[in-house]
Design a protein around this nucleic acid. Structure first.
Lengths: 339, 339
DNA sequence: CTTGCTTACTTAATCGTTTAAGCATATATT
DNA sequence: AATATATGCTTAAACGATTAAGTAAGCAAG
């Protein structure tokens, strides 16, 4: 790579000191009482040589990198991709750059990522935390690193977070299924202790018991690492029971997509035989023969909030934690039509 | 943010010079002839204080940032998300970090991104170039910035690139439609001069003429900025003609998904009335009532190749351009079944 | 004519790390 | 005994930018 033009090069060409050039190019001429002539000359040379400030040197001096680190579960998953995109855009508006990393829901990778990002001197972190990463989050707190959790948080740790009302959203979605006449409503969720998923499960269960509907054997859990097999087993059990399920609620879009693949394979009719509702959005839901009813997360709003709160923490290290909870929207379509 | 532990802090605590600490912690004790006792002591203190090297300071000294910049069209699009993911993983294996930016197929944004990334001293770039960005690419060449184009390239500029055989893939896909008995095969592509799309169009056209099939009025173009309207118009024209199309080939997955939404809306039967094939993969294709035949791009291989070639350029600035072309796979499913 | 104030610059320290070169002291070689 | 070599450390410069503090010259005021 061709060596870049530095202040020194400009200073040399102008026959002045590096400091003077710096004052001019950072628009501190007034304060530093630089002569008009000289200022003009320096700017001209800078333009001629196409000077671009070395961000790394600046960072070293200033202690800020104007970079924020983002840790998602998997950037290739459209949900996280969208989150990343809104954060990227919002960060750019504030002159920040984003470094993203995928944790694969794996706490070791997550810990590594946090270290890599902090060593690169990011000014703050936006994290979609992984199961078992409480200790990492606590460490961030102790080290006084500005950070915001998004999509998920740990109820036992008081941190800034952006989340949605998982319980209510779930409760609403399941209530909707009940109102459309479903009696045996199954749910497929991840086998995890993460609070957001637990809340979704709780919303589901409470909606059922609130309406005196059975819950026994209707909640199935799939392992993140064995989605395909576990979902097939779950659906086999739900649909093969003496009283088969007449509705199915998926806790995330990846679960839904995998589930719908199998539902297609089995030739199950939606919504006649089985109503379907999913958390999260997906293009795939539009192409299913019965467009899938889903819970829409306000990703744009979440991303904006995350950046806003993070920047507040970066600017004021003493700021107390801020928990933002944003409402979702149940988008009702044919997959959950009344029988 | 709590001030980080520096070499100075360790040096102070150990009562030695900063240099000595540096030698030890970068494992140059042999070369620098550091006493065993002292080395042990320094390491112990470093561990106790949880020393983490300041990557920025290191970069300033070394001139390398161990960071690569990646410019995609839109990280929230699963195709680019996958590309980004494989590059992220591959980069990490080589101790590189990735900064991603989305250009939105907009050459101004692309230019801005290139500048931002270069100012952040990335060691090299992986770029999915945008229409009209030839000048930017030429500049990278002139400035001798290590970079690789991926997914697309400019035939007029000799650069390193990773691409697929768009012409052949398209030709194969359309030939497949012809063999399955289709006679009026439409194509919907982007209105762009980008070479990869032009090649896809060419593969389509040649497959038709090779088989003495009509081409007139069957190739429709949609603007990136007006996908929805343009696709609807295109499909209306194709299906409303005196002799309606009996097959449709989409040049990308976003075009296909938007097209399929409208096909569903119109109640067109696939594959009976209309066969469908698309470039690229998508989860959504699995959920369509007739799983969509598609051209699978070897994204993993592409990402690996991109990182490999880029690192070669970074390591050897004189290395000549390397053009990698990888084969695709036509995955045949029900959407293109014989009539 | 000396003091003080402007103006227009330069010097030098700093951020955290790396690394060549230097300097004692101890030990080995002739 | 004089010289060479090994050992264990320190000094200092450098990367590129920022910025407080210093200086030199010109001019005005007392």
């Amino acid at each position: 790579m061709k060596k870049k033009v530095s202040l020194k090069d400009i200073a040399q060409e102008a026959g002045v000191s590096v400091a003077l050039v710096s004052y001019v190019l950072t628009n501190k001429e007034e304060k530093a009482r630089v002569g008009q002539e000289m200022a003009k000359k320096i700017r001209k040379i800078a333009r001629k040589l196409n000077y671009q400030p070395n961000h790394i040197a600046r960072s070293l001096k200033s202690g800020r990198s104007d970079t924020i680190g983002l840790i998602v579960a998997d950037i290739s998953n459209p949900f996280f991709g969208h989150v990343a995109r809104t954060i990227e855009d919002e960060a750019k508006k504030n002159n920040y750059t984003v470094i993203v990393g995928s944790s694969d829901e794996n706490m070791d990778k997550s810990g590594d990522l946090i270290n890599v990002l902090l060593n690169r001197q990011v000014d703050g972190l936006i994290v979609i935390p992984t199961e078992g990463s409480e200790a990492q989050i606590r460490q961030l707190q102790e080290r006084n690193v500005p950070f915001v959790l998004i999509d998920r948080f740990f109820p036992g740790i008081a941190t800034s977070s952006i989340s949605i009302n998982n319980f209510a959203a779930s409760h609403d979605a399941v209530s909707h299924l009940i109102h459309s006449g479903r009696k045996r409503i199954g749910m497929i969720a991840y086998k995890t202790n993460m609070h957001h998923i637990a809340e979704r499960r709780r919303g589901y269960s409470e909606a059922l018991t609130d309406n005196d509907l059975p819950t026994a054997g209707l909640l199935k859990l799939a392992r993140y690492s064995h989605i395909k097999e576990d979902i097939r087993t779950a659906i086999d059990q739900l649909m093969g029971a003496k009283k088969p399920a007449d509705a199915l609620f998926f806790a995330t879009n990846s679960l839904a997509i995998e589930g719908l693949r199998y539902i297609i394979e089995l030739g199950i009719k939606v919504p006649e035989q089985l109503a379907v509702v999913s958390f999260d959005e997906s293009e795939a839901f539009d192409l299913f023969h019965a467009p899938v009813t889903f819970i829409r997360q306000p990703i744009l709003e979440m991303g904006k909030a995350a950046v806003r709160v993070l920047l507040e923490h970066i600017r004021d290290g003493e700021r107390p934690a801020e928990e933002v909870c944003i409402d979702t929207e149940l988008v009702i379509r044919r997959s959950s039509a009344a029988q």
